[in-house]
Simulated scan of single mutants.
Amino acid sequence: MDAATNLEWHPSKVEGKQFPDVPEHIASAADEAYRCFSISALRAAILLGRSVVEATAKDKGIVKGTLATKINGLEAAGHIRPLIAETAHEIRFLGNDMAHGDFIEPVSDGQAADVLAFMDEVLNEVYQGPARVNARRAARIAPTAD
């Protein structure tokens, strides 16, 4: 028996998440956030979740100011509802600690899971929900074959 057969890998499985209706550069970062979470790289997952929100704002043409300003800009432009804006701000609050090197307090699985769930809400609001509605609309108005 060689040494390779006695290897045990940790983690045994890395899990991401697909975002088919999100621009690739944003979807890949969101997937990476989930992969980080699956290996307990919690700070990285939170920081990527924060970065996904900022990239989403930039993708929608909101490029100036702080992340708080960009989130407010997404809301003002009608890309997100007020509740989703509050959700995005919660990502920002926790992500700011990671972004600015404030690692004094430990990060829990629950905090990272919340950030990912909130990130999903933002992506659903901005990209995935509209894509589903547009697909349904296109199917409804498409000419039917007789």
Score class of each variant (00 low, 15 high):
M1N: 06
M1I: 08
A4H: 11
N6C: 08
L7I: 13
E8N: 09
K13Y: 11
E15L: 15
E15M: 12
P20V: 10
P20Q: 05
V22K: 03
E24I: 07
E24F: 14
I26C: 04
A27E: 01
A27D: 05
A29H: 11
A30Q: 08
E32A: 06
A33C: 03
C36W: 10
C36G: 06
S38T: 11
A45Q: 02
A45R: 07
L47H: 06
L47E: 01
L48H: 06
E54D: 11
A55E: 10
A57Q: 05
A57Y: 09
A57H: 05
K60T: 06
T66S: 14
A68V: 09
K70P: 04
E75H: 08
A77H: 02
H79D: 08
R81Y: 09
R81S: 12
P82N: 10
A85G: 04
H89F: 06
E90Y: 08
I91L: 04
I91H: 05
N96P: 01
H100K: 01
H100S: 09
I104H: 15
Q111Y: 12
V115L: 01
A117V: 06
E121K: 07
V122C: 09
L123D: 00
E125I: 00
Q128D: 13
G129L: 13
N134G: 12
R137H: 07
P143D: 05
D146K: 00
